[in-house]
Computed example of a mutant assay.
Amino acid sequence: MKTAVIVFPGSNRDRDMFHALELITGTRPLSVWHTETTLPDVDLVIVPGGFSYGDYLRSGAIAARSPILKDMIARANAGVSILGVCNGFQILTEAGLLPGALMRNAGLNFVCKEVLLETVNNTTRFSNAFAKGQVWRCPVAHHDGNYFADADTLKAIEDNGQVVFRYANGTNPNGSIHDIAGIINEKGNVLGMMPHPENLVEPLQGGTDGRALFESLISALETA
Rank of each mutant, 00 (worst) to 15 (best):
Q90N: 05
T153P: 00
S11L: 10
N160F: 01
V111D: 03
D152M: 09
L116K: 15
N87W: 11
E215I: 04
R211T: 13
T123P: 00
E36D: 15
N169V: 02
L98D: 03
M17W: 00
E36S: 14
A4T: 13
N128R: 14
K2M: 10
T38S: 14
G192V: 11
L213Y: 05
G49W: 10
G206R: 06
T25H: 08
L221I: 13
F130Y: 15
N122W: 06
M194H: 02
V115S: 08
A149D: 10
R15I: 08
I24K: 06
A212Y: 04
T171C: 07
E186Q: 13
P173R: 14
P173Q: 12
G100V: 09
K155C: 06
A95D: 07
V80I: 14
L92S: 02
V190C: 03
D159V: 01
R104K: 15
D209W: 01
G88I: 12
D150I: 11
R166E: 07
H196N: 03
G206V: 11
K113F: 01
Q134L: 02
G207K: 11
T171G: 06
G50E: 11
G60V: 08
T171I: 12
K113T: 14
E202A: 14
E118R: 15
H34P: 00
G192P: 04
Q134N: 03
I180V: 15
E215V: 04
C86M: 07
L21Q: 07
S216I: 05
G100M: 10
H142W: 07
K113V: 07
E202F: 05
H34T: 02
G100K: 09
A63Q: 02
V163I: 15
G161A: 06
E186N: 06
P139S: 09
G88L: 12
T37G: 00
V135Y: 02
N77F: 00
G161W: 03
G182L: 10
M1W: 06
G161Q: 11
Q134Y: 01
L221R: 12
Q134G: 01
I91M: 09
E114H: 14
T123W: 01
S66D: 11
A131T: 11
P195W: 12
G207M: 10
A64K: 03
E118P: 00
G210W: 07
K113R: 14
Q205A: 04
V85A: 02
G49F: 11
G188K: 13
F214A: 08
L221Q: 11
C112M: 07
T124M: 06
S66Y: 05
P48L: 09
T124S: 15
A61H: 08
A95C: 05
A131H: 10
M194D: 01
V163C: 03
N185S: 11
P99Y: 10
T123G: 04
N109I: 09
A4W: 12
A131E: 14
L44H: 02
N12C: 06
N87V: 10
D71H: 12
H178E: 15
Q90V: 09
A149V: 05
L217K: 01
H178R: 15
S66F: 05
G161T: 08
P195H: 12
N128Q: 14
D144M: 13
R104D: 01
A61N: 00
H143Y: 09
V111C: 03
V32Q: 03
R13E: 05
A151H: 04
I82L: 13
L200Q: 03
